[in-house]
Nucleic acid binder design. Structure first.
Lengths: 130, 130
DNA sequence: ACTAATAAAAGTAACAGTTATCGATATTGA
DNA sequence: TCAATATCGATAACTGTTACTTTTATTAGT
């Protein structure tokens, strides 16, 4: 019987799935509260970890202290703007090349990796030119 | 007059600089307490952030909740063992290749990146073969 | 449809890592 | 040596997250 249906979990996933940014748990909490006013923050955390375990979502940790969530579980990487802190998806053709390069000098077994790029997003880059 | 000398800061940096693992603040605190018994945890945190701002050390965030510190600020990446949780440096030749690949489809300016590899370290790989 | 079993809920307390505050101390330029 | 002030130790406060407890909702079997 393992996993039961819950409308709170649906609401969380529904909110997350049409998003391109990568909201944190409390942003999700505030948003979902609009349709589920009685939802508890604990419920949000619990369901986010359930959704992660079942592979419906993934986490993105950009080093700002909080965990971000992403319903796009396809193979992609992330860019963090050092100016405004925004997080964007970044496409990388031939990303597997990275694993190859890394494996050259490593004795263990590399099963995966996450790359976080940083710099200026296109908006901040534009502003810095003025 | 900006930055004054402090033996607490020296002790923290001295401890960190001969280390290849990447201790957390409280590991550093416990270690430095042996030579500076009265040092406060707040002092450790404060100095770690000062050392980071001055570029003497860098932070490594492997997703275990705590921030790790590394006195090796040269261009290198990190590997995290999914079995034992150890963190190792990983050398990457042709690292600039990665930036190139990433820049292909990105409008902003990429100034750097961190890659966190995960898998089995050589020790755990050895054990798993038995 | 009813019921029993139990997953999941809300609400709240607890926790870990970190940051901020404050009076006392140590370092430094004059 | 002295005044200015960065840093200190001690501790309180804050943030993100997890755990606990009682109540509610979902589901499988009749």
């Amino acid at each position: 019987m393992a996993l039961k249906h819950s409308k709170q979990r649906d609401a969380i996933y529904d909110f997350l799935k049409d998003r391109k940014d990568h909201p944190t748990a409390d942003v999700i909490y505030e948003a979902v509260r609009k349709t589920e006013p009685n939802i508890s923050l604990g419920t949000v955390y619990r369901n986010l970890s359930v959704l992660k375990e079942t592979g419906m979502i993934r986490t993105v940790e950009v080093g700002d202290g909080a965990v971000h969530f992403d319903a796009d579980v396809s193979n992609h990487n992330h860019f963090v703007c050092t100016e405004c802190g925004c997080v964007e998806d970044i496409e990388m053709k031939s990303i597997d090349k990275v694993r190859e390069i890394a494996s050259e000098n490593f004795d263990g077994k590399i099963t995966g990796f996450n790359t976080y790029f940083y710099g200026l997003c296109s908006d901040c880059l534009e502003k810095s030119k003025v």
